[in-house]
Design a protein around this nucleic acid. Sequence first.
DNA 1: CACTTCGTCTCGTTCAGCGATACGCTGCGG
DNA 2: CCGCAGCGTATCGCTGAACGAGACGAAGTG
Lengths: 253, 253
Amino acid sequence: MTETADLDTVLGKAVTILRAFRPEDRVVSLAELVRRTGLHKATVHRLSSGLVTNRLLDRADGGYRLSGGLFELGMLASLERSLLEVAMPFLQDLYERTHETVHLGVREGHDVVYVAKIGGHRQAKVPSRPGGRMPLHCTAIGKALLAYAGADLRREVLTGPLERRTPHTVVAPGILRRQLQRVTETGVAFEQEESAVGLVCVAAPVLGRGDEPLAAISVAGPSHRFRPEGHVTAVRSAAAALGSTLSRRDLLR
Amino acid sequence: MTETADLDTVLGKAVTILRAFRPEDRVVSLAELVRRTGLHKATVHRLSSGLVTNRLLDRADGGYRLSGGLFELGMLASLERSLLEVAMPFLQDLYERTHETVHLGVREGHDVVYVAKIGGHRQAKVPSRPGGRMPLHCTAIGKALLAYAGADLRREVLTGPLERRTPHTVVAPGILRRQLQRVTETGVAFEQEESAVGLVCVAAPVLGRGDEPLAAISVAGPSHRFRPEGHVTAVRSAAAALGSTLSRRDLLR
DNA sequence: CACTTCGTCTCGTTCAGCGATACGCTGCGG
DNA sequence: CCGCAGCGTATCGCTGAACGAGACGAAGTG
């Protein structure tokens, strides 16, 4: 748990309860929430009731589930909302051209947060999901963002521990640095089964006016048939087009 | 304001602040939040700080904005998450077949909540957005959901006031009832500029095991060229396919 | 310069939130 | 059949987190 929420305020506790939900679980029992949060049983009980009346939680059969009200609120979040809106047509085009899983991601700390994921029936099994996180260093989107990020952030990540996700994850700072260097030269980043086995990926950064990376777009496919090199130009031009559209309106900052 | 949140608890106030944000605004000043919520200035100040430390708000230049943390949380909401995941390929197919704006919506009270919206560059200007709401009675998705909903809900909506959104909005309960009747006969619902001028729409319900409507899919386009009748089969089969996929796995309830 | 609006901070009051405790229910093992 | 463990829920004094009136400086306005 890297979470260090403030457990001395009602707000902190409430958020801790909400964040105790994991993507995989549908309903979580009161007892389980107590276990995960470490809060007192009565507290979780009381706060959960409060969250229910405020439409952030729903009572379900054997416990609680995150409510649709939370979804509605989340979709109001300004940055990802406007980004998604403008980006969708470009992602759509890219999907039609490739018919592989297309991602749009932004940086948040040392992670990628996926803002959108579109794919058809034949899509590769990828661990990503909208709203989900992945370490920067093991994904194509992450590398694209990192390569164009400020030198200090790059240093932070390179000197920090590089978590191994698969046998192919690049955990040597030197190799990663060279890869990032190459990204700035070519304008695209690759991932070869570094975040999940069987998954390969190409990504290109979406750059704002000052060449600061606002987001990145990727195309992903299963390693047995997907040739990332074949999609380099498609990804790059989609990212470039999105970047200039974003710059033209004023959605940076 | 139809909102009747509980202003006597910290939680209620915090949620009230979050919900005070509207889709159109990027940053909202403290004073504006005070105005919108009716809370005491000091209270909004204190709570906003708390929301910032809990990553639900960000401080921005002239005030606050909804944070990416809220987006992440919202995307964890179980029902819409799994629905979106399963539905995406079908929506994608439908988009490729039509190249018009495709929607996926669920019912929440007397409203539609849009779970997904995909469209290309040429898409019609539609007022919908993911996470947004629209009254049931003036949208194709809403009518599709309503037609297959329980008799009591249908009665509630038909007897309640039917808000006029455009000159074409159907506000006569009798006409609406007949339209809904027709929806159950044909399996598709139409909208002719009833929610926004210049916008027409076809929708089909996504039915679960017991024929209860889980969601609905629509295709929308600009009235000057879009012929909804031409997409009836495409929408209907997409919705049917999604419905049977959802039923096969157990994502209902 | 007078006046407004805004964000921030202080401070004494008080009631919302706290958690130990208890209770009823269910399921399970002996 | 009983005893026990785990669960959700309810009770109830205690206390400090939250409250809101108010003050203050900064910035804008006329």
